[in-house]
């Protein structure tokens, strides 16, 4: 048969092919069904084990509002730290790719230093050690600097998390930018675009697509790491849960509850990530 007869799609299909097509379809729907059953089974298993453990659900319900009240801090810290990290990541990535020796070496040292030290140490550095630096500076004759550098717990936490995640994300953004083929830069240059226009209009929008999945990873990790601000005595989610659990010797209930709250928050983030990814995939070749 000539390939020209494309218009009559269903006409020329032989019956044995029909059989195989049906098989493929049943396989697909079977797989979907089995996945649903498997997930349902896992959920039932989880609920049953929670009941078997003899959890005090009344107790959990009673303290739920108190614990949830801490989520405000979690959101605040995570949101502001993420914003800061994004800005630092873009600036850092441009620095890492820059041919300016000062800018480049600064960005490279930033990434190396921050990635090479524990977040815990950094948090305390911002909170406890910075005032001491201020004191030393004041001794050199800068008045009022110590008070300026003595940060309250929440701003210190935001700075620590933002600066730390900014360093990791710098490398993600750099890799994303470098993953765009050289031909794109050349086409932009050939049109007469300068370096800034090329980055803004051509390279970065494409890099963003590559960057989003790993950056979402960082976001999710950061939401959970925001619990580190409890080290400085901020009454956020996990801090409240641990306090209450200890006092009433019902840590299991409280920890399970707070774990669920984090899980739900991260599921929302994942949902948003998938939405954005789908939106960014517009230019892709798809069979539909």
């Amino acid at each position: 048969m000539k390939p020209k007869t494309r218009q009559s799609v269903t006409d020329g299909i032989p019956p044995e092919a029909e059989l195989i097509l049906n098989q493929i379809e049943t396989k697909k729907s079977n797989y979907k069904q089995k996945m649903i059953i498997a997930f349902a089974f896992l959920i039932v298993l989880m609920v049953v084990s929670l009941i078997v453990l003899g959890l005090d659900f009344k107790f959990m319900l009673k303290w739920l509002p108190f614990i949830l009240a801490g989520s405000g801090y979690t959101f605040l810290v995570a949101f502001l730290a993420i914003s800061l990290a994004c800005i630092l990541a873009v600036v850092g990535a441009l620095g890492r790719l820059s041919t300016n020796p000062i800018f480049n070496s600064m960005a490279t040292s930033y990434v190396s230093l921050i990635r090479g030290t524990p977040l815990l140490v950094q948090v305390y550095m911002w909170y406890l050690a910075l005032p001491q630096i201020g004191k030393a500076l004041e001794a050199y004759g800068i008045p009022g600097i110590q008070r300026l550098l003595t940060l309250p717990a929440v701003p210190a936490g935001i700075l620590a998390l933002g600066v730390c995640y900014g360093a990791y994300m710098t490398e993600i953004v750099r890799a994303g930018i470098q993953s765009i083929k050289i031909g794109q830069t050349e086409a932009a240059k050939a049109l007469g675009m300068n370096a800034t226009q090329t980055m803004k209009r051509v390279i970065f929008p494409q890099a963003l697509r590559v960057i989003i999945p790993p950056v979402s990873n960082e976001f999710i990790a950061m939401v959970k790491d925001s619990s580190l601000v409890s080290l400085m005595g901020v009454w956020e989610l996990s801090y409240r849960a641990i306090k209450v659990g200890r006092r009433h010797f019902q840590s299991l209930e409280m920890l399970i509850m707070v774990a669920f709250i984090y899980w739900i928050m991260c599921m929302i983030l994942q949902f948003v990530q998938e939405k954005i990814e789908r939106h960014m995939a517009r230019g892709d070749r798809r069979i539909s």
Binding site: G183, E186, A188, A190, G192, N194, V202, G283
Partner: peptide
């Protein structure tokens, strides 16, 4: 250089269209 690039158009072997547009 930008001036010359504005005066010249270039077509590449691999097209190099911007895929996000």
């Amino acid at each position: 250089i930008l001036d010359i690039r504005k005066k010249t158009g270039m077509c590449f072997q691999s097209f190099n269209l911007f895929p996000h547009m």
